[in-house]
C-alpha cells in the first residue's frame, strides 16, 4: 500500500536508497483467527507452572553444584584437568539461573565459563578462583539469595569478577550480572 502520491521528491529519495516497506505474505493472525488480548486463566496456569518448576530447579541446581564440586575435586586429585566437563556444568548453571530469579548463579556461571574454557592446566590462583565460585554458588542456593542479592550479592560478584580478571589477566564480558 502506497500512502503518498508517487513521483514526489521523497519517493525519489526512497527509490535512490532502495528502501521498500513490505507486508509479510503470511500472518500469524490468519493462522490464529479472531480474538484479542491475553487469557487470564492461561496466564495464571503458566505462572503456576513456573512456580512449580522453581522448587525443582533449586533441588536440581544444588545437585549440579555438588557435581561441579566433586568433579573438580576428582580432577585435582588425579592431576588431570578436563575443562570441557567443568565448562558444560558451568554453562548450564549460567543459562537458567536468571529465569528462576537467581541471576547471581547465572553471573557466577558466566565468569566460571570464562575461566575454564580452553584451559587444560590450572595455576594455583585459578584453582582458588574455581573454588571460590563453587563456594559462592553454594552460598546463594543454600541461602536462597534471589535477585541480585543486595549489597552482599554485589560484593560477592565483584570479588569473583576481580579474581577472574587477575587469573585471566583480562576483563570478563560487559557486566557481571548481565551474563548471556
Amino acid at each position: 500500500m502506497t500512502r503518498r502520491r508517487p513521483g514526489t521528491r521523497a519517493d525519489a529519495a526512497a527509490a535512490a536508497n532502495d528502501v521498500v516497506r513490505l507486508f509479510p505474505p503470511r500472518s500469524l493472525r490468519a493462522r490464529v483467527g479472531p480474538g484479542k488480548g491475553l487469557n487470564p486463566r492461561l496466564l495464571a496456569n503458566a505462572e503456576a507452572t513456573v512456580a512449580a518448576l522453581q522448587a525443582a530447579y533449586e533441588q536440581r541446581i544444588e545437585n549440579d553444584i555438588s557435581t561441579l564440586s566433586s568433579k573438580f575435586d576428582s580432577m585435582r586429585r588425579s592431576g588431570r584437568f578436563d575443562h570441557q566437563q567443568l565448562y558444560l556444568i558451568a554453562h548450564e548453571i549460567k543459562g537458567e539461573g536468571g529465569s528462576y530469579d537467581y541471576p547471581l548463579l547465572s553471573a557466577f556461571g558466566h565468569t566460571l565459563c570464562l575461566l575454564v574454557r580452553r584451559r587444560n592446566r590450572l595455576t594455583a590462583e585459578e584453582v582458588e578462583t574455581i573454588e571460590a565460585h563453587i563456594a559462592a554458588m553454594r552460598a546463594v542456593i543454600r541461602g536462597q539469595v534471589r535477585g541480585e542479592g543486595g549489597a552482599v550479592g554485589r560484593e560477592l560478584a565483584a570479588n569473583l569478577d576481580a579474581m577472574v580478571v587477575r587469573a585471566l589477566d583480562e576483563t570478563p564480558a560487559p557486566s557481571h550480572l548481565k551474563a548471556p
Partner: peptide
C-alpha cells in the same frame, strides 16, 4: 515528505 519509501506487496524475489 520524510516518510520512508513506498509500501508494496511482497514480491516473490524479496522473500
Amino acid at each position: 515528505p520524510e516518510r520512508r519509501g513506498p509500501t508494496e506487496p511482497a514480491p516473490r524475489q524479496a522473500r
